[in-house]
Design a protein around this nucleic acid. Sequence first.
DNA 1: CCGATACGCAACAGTGCCGTTTCGGAATCC
DNA 2: GGATTCCGAAACGGCACTGTTGCGTATCGG
Lengths: 199, 199
Amino acid sequence: MTIQEPVTARPAGRPRSEKAEKAIIEATLDLIGDGMGVAELSIEAIASRAGVGKTTIYRRWSNKEELVADALATLKAPLPPLAGVSVRDDLISLLNAMREDKDRSRTRCVMNVMMSDADRYPALMERFRKVAIEPRKEAMREVLRRGIGTGELRADLDVEMGMAILSGTMIWYTKWASGDLPEDLPERIVDHVLPGLAA
Amino acid sequence: MTIQEPVTARPAGRPRSEKAEKAIIEATLDLIGDGMGVAELSIEAIASRAGVGKTTIYRRWSNKEELVADALATLKAPLPPLAGVSVRDDLISLLNAMREDKDRSRTRCVMNVMMSDADRYPALMERFRKVAIEPRKEAMREVLRRGIGTGELRADLDVEMGMAILSGTMIWYTKWASGDLPEDLPERIVDHVLPGLAA
DNA sequence: CCGATACGCAACAGTGCCGTTTCGGAATCC
DNA sequence: GGATTCCGAAACGGCACTGTTGCGTATCGG
């Protein structure tokens, strides 16, 4: 009796097209990136944009929410490498990563979704938070903690508060500043905030 | 020849019901407050919720955008009275006003709309910005400017930056903190930020 | 009381999306 | 070659909303 290895076990018939799968996810992210809320996303629009039959979508995902969850999950967070020399430099690097993200319409509008649809799709957002948000928050926390350790920052610093101040300020500019963000904005933010957090 | 005063000149027939008008605007705000985006708002839903015929709506507003614009415009910004004693106290008052707004679902979700629909309804948002956002921003600017004058704050302080830091931090907590915001949050924010802005 | 207008209600055809099914063709395994 | 599964395209009935229209009623000025 030969036992078929379950990993290699291929179901007979034509295999699913990887290309179609990627096209569907790309189309989903494109539409979200164009300013669509999750509620307004239509499967038909996704299928049309992906050049794919609706059938092909329903064969893989049972509903819109699961598709969006998978799509968002593919947005990995490529954190910038941190020099680790000074707290100031590292914080500027982190904020600069946020600034550059603004130009990528996908990332920007994913933030919109996070803000406005978070209440309606809690499971979705929880998943996205784990994949994309938490790593960035943790990176900043780590920088702040290290700063406390080296004495660059106040020993009694509230790390969460420091993160809220820096990220919140950057997001404020991202959402409400007119036009592009100046290149030296992260530097200016850090230089206005850091004195309050320093030892 | 008696000239009818144009102010008193009443168009013949049954006058429009103020009650209906208020009910429509209330219903609109309620729906937005329940997490609806502008795009998903349906005239039918508004009419149904207001206990009003669709006709009555279309008789007053030619489309959804104008209705929403009028509805948002009714949200006046009741700024807190500022004691004017110290910069610290005034800033805490302003942030506390934002904190209390969070509980009012309307105000909270109006913020959602501001964030996510700003790109799609620029005229709408411009109008709302003037009515609700700018007065608050101006109030905070004024407090910071006065602080510079009294020497409480650095003479070279970037007022816009100071505003971005304080408001941005508060919004960060408003959007992403779990549960209610602690009562002393404004105080803690100001105490973490102010040392960096002080002389 | 009359004319005018607004009211709430119900119905209309038009549109878009839903999730499903059917179709001819293509890819892969046995 | 035959079985099987996936492909894209098209069409289905159903539902929700659109903006418009006509109905009978309510409320005003003259």
